[in-house]
Design a protein around this nucleic acid. Structure first.
Length: 287
DNA sequence: ATGCAGGCGCGCA
DNA sequence: TGCGCGCCTGCA
């Protein structure tokens, strides 16, 4: 397939490391030249910074420019959002400065559901390994630039995997969750298309919680990283830690109530909890 | 070696 | 409704 290129002007709110290492995605790898290559929505994409330009190149059947603008959330003004957040308090001022180049990707819903079910009680290198193997076995081959990549499998393709096949990917106890969720989506008991049309975030969240392997944290990650819902607040051990350190000051971190954290986030971060969470999380985990 | 990693589902009060 | 606990697996 032919190589496609799209370029934009370099900007402060676009840093490769911040975008790809902040924990929202699992299929992007840093290349020896500092650029990142990944597979998104059946396209292989490479992003590099070239002086005062950001260059996207890749192989895609879709409208490449449209794909890039949508996937990288390029039509949202992050400078404005960071400004708004940094006015809330010093913590966010520091965190937004630290993660100044973060952008929340608009990832495929189905892929994000499966990926974050896999993320439960797991670590990033292993999550990436499992997803890669899953794509190699059940995704479609894409050749680009002399290399071979694999798209994330469709629900139909993943249905072909037996429980044993899934276990063979290294999923461990998550195998049954992937198995059940795949079938629930295929049967339209959970209908992806009508789900996307839901306006109310809480209603979406409830619906996601009906999927096997999707609890509160995973649901919020799915909403934030594939549905552009910034009014959620995924709470994991790191977020609990940073919220306790900055706002609660409980000596026994494990005793900090999730409800308490959610309440603080909702009141303080006014509708942008998800974004605030990313900056705070990324800053805390990186230092 | 034993603990742990970006939780979830289950059983039990 | 709210807890505590076990769980595949790979890596330090």
């Amino acid at each position: 397939m032919s190589n496609q290129i799209y370029e934009i002007e370099n900007q402060e709110s676009f840093e490769l490391e911040d975008i790809f290492e902040c924990g929202q995605c699992f299929r992007w790898d840093k290349q020896p030249n500092g650029s990142y290559t990944g597979v998104a929505k059946n396209s292989v994409i490479n992003v590099k910074k070239d002086g005062n330009k950001i260059v996207f190149s890749g192989s895609s059947k879709a409208d490449f420019k449209k794909l890039i603008r949508d996937y990288f959330d390029l039509d949202r003004n992050y400078d404005e959002l960071k400004e708004k957040l940094s006015k809330i308090d010093e913590n966010l001022e520091i965190a937004t400065k630290f993660g100044k180049g973060i952008r929340i990707l608009n990832q495929d819903l189905w892929e994000t559901i499966i990926s974050f079910i896999i993320s439960a009680n797991n670590n990033i290198p292993r999550i990436k390994k499992i997803i890669e193997k899953m794509s190699q076995n059940y995704g479609e081959k894409i050749e680009w630039n002399g290399n071979i990549y694999y798209s994330f499998p469709t629900p139909e393709a993943l249905e072909k995997a037996s429980l044993e096949d899934l276990r063979g990917l290294g999923l461990g106890f998550r195998d049954i969750r992937i198995y059940n969720t795949t079938r629930k989506i295929l049967s339209k008991e959970f209908d992806i298309d009508s789900f996307k049309k839901i306006e109310n975030t809480d209603e979406m969240r409830e619906k996601l919680l009906s999927l096997d392997g999707v609890g509160p944290k995973v649901a919020d990650c799915i909403l934030l990283f594939s549905m552009k819902r910034f009014d959620v607040f995924p709470i994991d051990v790191w977020v609990r830690r940073v919220m306790n350190e900055l706002y609660i000051h409980n000596e026994n971190e494990e005793k900090v109530n999730k409800k308490e954290i959610e309440k603080i986030a909702k009141e303080k971060f006014l509708g942008y909890q998800g974004l605030a969470q990313q900056y705070l999380f990324y800053h805390r985990r990186s230092s």
